[in-house]
């Protein structure tokens, strides 16, 4: 072990279910290696809790390598913790001080109700995707993708948008619980490419409508989402969404569809 181990105070949000009131409970956890990841640290906390006959803390995780978007947590007030461009599973204990009190809260947003402890329901993101986060394509009839020339700049931009892992940190970081960074990224990754053109404007309207219907707030252009996003998704994609939606509405108006 390279550095000496950490003794920590963990102030963790405990809540039985969506309807029960939650509260913070503070646990002491000693001898944590600075090389362990944040989630490994929580695993050790849970072992300690199970050993003493208490309920373990529920938290989301899956890949533990920053690609699946399952892990969440607001750590000392910042979704995914203070490390820039990383998920909670990529955060290591060496970023904390010995003796530090770490406050761990669930992502907070009305559309993301707490299921238990630190686990929230991010299903509204699925609803937004189902509203337009896809292209229509007959099975088996897709042409060779390389047959469609796409400029490097455009391809890069679409890839940047597609880097979104749907974790919800943008919503959690936003004081308005706005989902515009997620929706902007998921819309633009398709709207930028030729394959996304046929449904471009229908997609813009349907995804924004789904976003609103699920109770997310309104963007005030303060940029907290971009700063918290583990994939560095840019506010540019919100601007693209704003533009596509405006064009979609104008097109719809002049086509007489209201």
């Amino acid at each position: 072990m390279s550095e000496k181990s950490l003794n920590l105070n963990l102030r963790v949000w405990r809540q039985k279910n969506a309807d029960a009131p939650g509260k913070f409970v503070t646990y002491k956890l000693d001898n944590i290696s600075p090389d362990s990841s944040f989630l490994e640290m929580l695993d050790l906390l849970n072992e300690q809790l199970i050993d003493s006959g208490e309920e373990p803390v529920a938290f989301d995780h899956d890949c533990r390598e920053g690609i699946c978007g399952s892990c969440s947590l607001t750590i000392n007030g910042i979704p995914h913790g203070k490390g820039r461009m990383m998920t909670t599973c990529q955060l290591h204990m060496r970023s904390f001080e010995n003796g530090e009190t770490i406050t761990i809260e669930p992502f907070r947003a009305q559309p993301f109700p707490v299921i238990r402890d630190l686990v929230v329901n991010r299903e509204p993101f699925d609803k937004i995707m189902q509203a337009g986060g896809f292209i229509d394509q007959r099975i088996g009839s897709a042409q060779d993708a390389n047959a469609l020339p796409i400029s490097k700049e455009t391809a890069d931009k679409a890839m940047d948008a597609a880097a979104c892992i749907g974790c919800g940190a943008c919503v959690a970081a936003c004081p308005n619980a706005s989902a515009m960074l997620f929706t902007g990224a998921k819309m633009s990754q398709l709207n930028l490419l030729p394959q996304g053109q046929p449904e471009r404007y229908k997609r813009a309207i349907n995804m924004v409508d789904a976003m609103d219907a699920n109770g997310f707030g309104n963007c005030t252009n303060i940029g907290e989402c971009e700063a918290a996003c583990p994939k560095g998704i840019s506010l540019d994609f919100i601007a693209m969404m704003n533009r596509d939606y405006a064009v979609a509405k104008v097109k719809r108006f002049f086509s007489g569809a209201a």
Binding site: T103, E105, Q110, A177, S178, N218, G223
Partner: peptide, 29 residues
Amino acid sequence: LLVIENRRARPQGYSVDKPIQATFASRTM
């Protein structure tokens, strides 16, 4: 309308609540 909806979308704040980078001006519009 925006303020009302935004409050409704985030009824519960964080116990540790400090902005990452947002300017004072943007948070006090």
